[in-house]
């Protein structure tokens, strides 16, 4: 591996730009994705940027159980993301269609249509789980720069249920953002 490839691997791991695509989601995962960019979780420490245009993005974040209406749009957007690219399925819906299973309005799960690299389970997943998934996807991108073909999609561990301490369920609110090292 020469110096340029090493630098490219390093940069890809530290600069994942996301594009968010809703495939018929109930909006729960979308809220958690945005929450991971807010001051408490601050994903920008890892170089994460939520981009407006799929052309700028490295990682496509898909939420929702993929309805018939959304399939073609998701495929188009996947084509518009320039390579090397990765796909993250955020929440249980794109992975398994969740509670909407066997619904006649669905064309999901997502990996029937796109090659998914990272699954982040949860309904909805916590923002820290999403950030972990993004970091994993960025690692996969870096491996692609080194021309190693990753084998199977990665399923992230389920991070415990919770509400971030916002409700009365007794969960302790987590500490404020700390410096995260990749």
């Amino acid at each position: 591996m020469n110096l340029w490839t090493k630098l490219m691997c390093y940069s890809r791991r530290r600069s994942p730009w996301l594009f968010h695509m809703n495939g018929g989601s109930c909006n729960g995962c979308d809220i958690e994705l945005i929450a991971s960019l807010t001051p408490r979780y601050d994903a920008e420490q890892l170089g994460v940027r939520l981009e407006g245009s799929p052309r700028h993005a490295d990682i496509l974040c898909v939420t929702g159980p993929i309805t018939h209406n959304a399939v073609n749009a998701i495929k188009t957007v996947y084509g518009q993301v320039c390579g090397p690219k990765a796909v993250i399925a955020i929440g249980s819906c794109p992975a398994t269609t969740n509670v909407f299973i066997d619904s006649r309005t669905l064309a999901g799960p997502l990996n029937k249509h796109l090659p998914v690299d990272v699954f982040v389970p949860g309904c909805p997943p916590r923002p820290d789980a999403i950030i972990q998934g993004v970091a994993k996807a960025a690692e996969i991108l870096a491996e692609r720069a080194a021309k190693k073909q990753p084998v199977d999609p990665v399923v992230m561990p389920l991070v415990g249920p919770g509400c971030g301490g916002a409700c009365a369920c007794g969960a302790k609110s987590e500490p404020a953002a700390e410096e995260v090292k990749l």
């Binding site: 630098l7 490219m8 390093y10 940069s11 890809r12 530290r14 600069s15 730009w17 001051p39 601050d42 920008e44 420490q45 170089g47 052309r55 490295d58 518009q80 320039c82 390579g83 090397p84 720069a145 953002a177 700390e178 410096e179």
Partner: peptide, 28 residues
């Protein structure tokens, strides 16, 4: 901007990493 919003913000070399990463991407 990050500090004003109470965040920690991107690491020092971030624009450099972004630049290198963009150089390695495909164009349509």
């Amino acid at each position: 901007v990050a500090l004003m919003q109470g965040r920690i913000g991107p690491p020092f070399m971030q624009p450099f990493y972004d630049f290198i990463k963009l150089l390695g991407k495909d164009t349509p």
